[in-house]
Amino acid sequence: MTTPQTDVDATDAPASDTATAVPTSVPADATVHECPYCDRPFTREDRVALHVGLQHYDVCTSEEEEAFETAYLAENAEIRRYRLKAAVALIVLYFGLLMVYAVAA
């Protein structure tokens, strides 16, 4: 990811002062992807794209905007799979308790 503006620091970006001031600690051997605007380290490149789109939308470049949209849509696909699992867990929990009630109470 390129750094288009080097003189923008976190305090200049509106509505991002609290979210970007997140204290982090990075293990020595970790692969780090940093936000070009606030230097917050992330574990994955797509999370940087999401972060930039959410926190620095007003100052980011059009490529970053595009990367954000791509990452956000990719997220949706994964969320759909997760929802299926959550629904299954809910059903198991509900019917599990129902069965237990039928037997125990």
Partner: peptide, 11 residues
């Protein structure tokens, strides 16, 4: 959701 950029990460 406020802390993490990725939603499943937040979950």
């Amino acid at each position: 959701f406020e802390v993490f950029p990725e939603r499943l990460q937040a979950v």
